[in-house]
């Protein structure tokens, strides 16, 4: 395997070469990604337009299916508000549930020690 520089006896020119080449490669990778990702919606929309046209209908530009992020945000917000309101529809009648217990002499006041005669 060949190395770009001699790691034992390096010179400053080697260091600047690594820096320059390295930084350029980082830019190259990300610029390539930019172009590919910019191309991606164009290709996908072209395929979609083609299929619509083949079906007999005509599509005017890309706006037909475009929904702005703000519109999505507004829809999402209204849904959240709607669902958050749901649980507030209550009867507002507070009731106490009466629980019937079978009689037991063990806890009866009649047999309590403080139940003195008057």
């Amino acid at each position: 395997m060949t190395f770009l520089i001699n790691v034992e006896n390096w010179e400053w020119s080697d260091i600047f070469t690594i820096t320059l080449v390295g930084y350029s490669v980082v830019f190259l990778v990300l610029v390539l990604l930019i172009y590919v990702y910019k191309l991606m919606p164009v290709v996908l929309n072209y395929k979609k337009r083609k299929s619509v046209e083949l079906g007999g209908a005509k599509m005017k530009g890309t706006e037909a299916h475009y929904v702005a992020g703000e519109v999505n945000a507004a829809i999402a917000m209204s849904l959240i508000l709607y669902f958050n309101e749901q649980h507030d529809d209550e009867s507002n009648v507070i009731t106490i549930k009466r629980v019937a217990r079978t009689y037991s002499p063990w806890s009866s006041k009649i047999y309590s020690v403080n139940n003195v005669l008057r």
Binding site: I15, I18, T19, G22, Y23, V26, L30, V31, L33, I34
Partner: peptide, 20 residues
């Protein structure tokens, strides 16, 4: 908005600057 990726690349100057 893929062009904003350039900013991520530009900030890598920190890596190569630190190397020097």
């Amino acid at each position: 908005n893929p062009r904003l990726m350039l900013l991520g690349a530009a900030a890598q100057i920190g890596v190569f600057g630190t190397f020097i």
